[in-house]
């Protein structure tokens, strides 16, 4: 994370004038507002923050901010963010996207980003559906959810992203709800502040293809206990809750990944010496 700036920006200063493509009532509006608020609360400067995304409704978010952004290909936000952060450790780098982007096509990168524990924040706006392609089952969709591509339901067990993140070595695991702007902003700010790979799963309803998710606002609640630093305990809590407990669920103290650095730099001529006969 960067040093706080002298010029204090308000949450609105982090929002651009580009009109989102999202449907009215989409949860992602709330996530955008929470993120802007978190960046303002951390007194970050928009030119020192980079939002990296893949493809999907939620991946359109970077252009709706005044930060630097990279809207890349489907599923590859995490490696792109990783390369950027390693090359430019001075920047605050936040990867974000949806459940299809992060858990299906990008699933392998999710595992390895958790393992690698680079100082990144990863926000997944999870609505249990592929919205941009008009309503197919995602890795977090219930197996019996009827849809045109897999009539009668996809018949496959949903993915457990928070437990997978824990098992893979993420240093910070939290669940938030898009309708709770203040709570989500606090969690995002804490994720950014925490060194290492911080994973924030945000329940973000798709009111177009999953209108029943409007009920989520009645189902969510703060987790009954605070964060633990014991991954086994956190995993047990997550596996046994109903998926609606909100808050920071795990916060560890793993050292972030740092590539080896060399104190005394060599010149190219020094390097070429090994070729000489």
């Amino acid at each position: 994370m960067n040093a706080p700036s002298a010029i204090v920006l308000a949450a609105k200063d982090f929002k651009s004038d580009t009109k989102p493509v999202w449907c009215p009532g989409c949860g992602d509006f709330g996530v955008l507002t929470s993120l802007a608020r978190a960046l303002a609360d951390l007194s970050l400067r928009s030119e020192e923050v980079v939002l990296v995304s893949g493809i999907g409704c939620s991946s359109r978010l970077p252009a709706y901010t005044t930060c630097y952004g990279f809207h890349g290909v489907h599923g590859r936000a995490l490696p792109l963010a990783t390369g950027l952060k390693i090359a430019r450790p001075d920047l605050t780098v936040i990867a974000l996207g949806g459940d299809g982007d992060g858990y299906s096509i990008g699933g392998n990168h999710f595992l390895h980003a958790c393992r690698r524990n680079v100082d990144l924040t990863y926000i997944v706006m999870d609505n249990h559906v592929y919205g941009m392609t008009k309503g197919q089952a995602s890795p977090t969709t219930e197996p019996d959810w009827d849809n045109p591509l897999t009539p009668g339901g996809i018949g496959v067990r949903p993915f457990q992203p928070l437990v997978i993140a824990l098992a893979s070595g993420a240093n910070f695991v939290a669940r938030a709800f898009s309708g709770n702007i203040v709570g989500s902003a606090e969690i995002i700010a804490e994720a950014i502040r925490t060194p290492g790979f911080a994973f924030v799963e945000i329940l973000s309803p798709c009111v177009t293809y999953r209108p029943e998710q409007r009920q989520w606002k009645e189902l969510v609640r703060p987790a009954p206990v605070g964060a633990t630093d014991d991954p086994a305990r956190a995993a047990r809590r997550i596996l046994t809750d109903d998926g609606f407990n909100l808050g920071v669920l795990y916060c560890g103290s793993r050292k972030p990944y740092q590539p080896q650095t060399v104190r005394e730099k060599k010149t190219l001529e020094d390097v070429a010496r090994e070729f000489r006969l």
């Binding site: 980079v50 290909v73 590859r76 490696p79 990783t82 390369g83 090359a87 730099k265 390097v271």
Partner: peptide, 27 residues
């Protein structure tokens, strides 16, 4: 590493090229 740069072993080539693009985007 000796001249002040970084090499990353990626989880696959999809990641490798995107890491490179990310670093280059960063200048």
């Amino acid at each position: 590493a000796e001249i002040g740069g970084t090499l990353m072993q990626a989880e696959d080539e999809l990641a490798a090229i995107n890491m490179a693009i990310g670093a280059s985007y960063g200048g």
